[in-house]
Design a binder for these strands. Sequence first.
DNA 1: GCAAATTAATGATTTATTCAAG
DNA 2: CTTGAATAAATCATTAATTTGC
Lengths: 210, 210
Amino acid sequence: MKVHQLTRGFWEHEPSLSLGCKRLRPLAPKLTNSDSSVTTLDLKSFIKSDCGPRKVGCYDEKRDSPPQVEAHSGGTRWNPTQEQIGILEMLYKGGMRTPNAHQIEHITAQLGKYGKIEGKNVFYWFQNHKARERQKQKRNSLGLMHSPRTLGATTINSDASGEGEREEDSHYKRKHRSWVIECFEEDNRLYEEQGKDKTLELFPLHPEGR
Amino acid sequence: MKVHQLTRGFWEHEPSLSLGCKRLRPLAPKLTNSDSSVTTLDLKSFIKSDCGPRKVGCYDEKRDSPPQVEAHSGGTRWNPTQEQIGILEMLYKGGMRTPNAHQIEHITAQLGKYGKIEGKNVFYWFQNHKARERQKQKRNSLGLMHSPRTLGATTINSDASGEGEREEDSHYKRKHRSWVIECFEEDNRLYEEQGKDKTLELFPLHPEGR
DNA sequence: GCAAATTAATGATTTATTCAAG
DNA sequence: CTTGAATAAATCATTAATTTGC
């Protein structure tokens, strides 16, 4: 397979790769296949070796001291403290919905005083909180006008929170902002040396359908 | 600009906060892009400018020199060259679906030789390509068997497109991995030194009043 | 032939779902 | 069951090929 060469060329900075692929023009019929007799290159092997698919996910944050539970708990997932949650909710109530990189950075720094936390935790928190507030509300409004049966009595708060949380948020959305992605440029060099990998299986291994 | 007291309280580690903020709708639709009231929020452009070329901001900032397309980059959105597309497709065909930070970094570096490109572009490309290949296939398989009878059987993965593209991808997903988010930790210091206060508009910035 | 108007393709962003730790 | 984490689906926005009228 010639693909091999292509691949190699690619990873080796070879500037000359004359693949015949042509970006199909927008309006073109767009035939169904983009051909490809080319194929399956051994990218896998290369990439894989590049970063050992060792531990999956974020368990290997600290190269050593694995069982070392520091501060709170292991290193699996963020376990917010009361203060952290409080502040986050406060911000949420204040109107914040999707903080950008700067804000996240800042917030993270502040919350860090109360316990271990990473930027992504803040990011996710907002995402989840927003989504869940929304669905909670939807459930409520729907439930109210429908059958009186309550599925989960456990849901104590059930909107009792009384936040006047409206859908306001959804208007000013649709505005470009990148918080999440824009960081790629910055963090590049970092990984270079660390060798820390979060790689995991790069390719699908188990066939199956969803 | 008065940035809400609440904010101040928070940032100063002040525990006493009495938010009564009600905050109403963010404000007018804000279409026509940035109100340009200036400094208020160009966080984004800020960030971007950090790296040089200001893209995101759209054109508002410089209302003149609009048609000035430099090279091809312009400044709006990534416009992949054929080589770039070719390589990406090659990788895709090779089985790559959701490259992690390392891979993205690497790929970006390589593709950068053929034209301007950022990590996020690579990230998005894979996301979009994967999704679109999927929907294309779904369309196909649905289309070809218009026998309304067995709808459920559609999963036979007819592969009509002639492409060997399988659905394998959708299983190994749900695997923790952060490429996107993990960068938050790293890029922090970047902003730090700049001295640029980020307290600026932590909130949606709705015109107070009201 | 050319440029405005159309339109398909696709880059970028947001929302909805799903998975799984605790 | 709650919720942090991650991915997929839906949507918006912009670019460029194509069409159209002159």
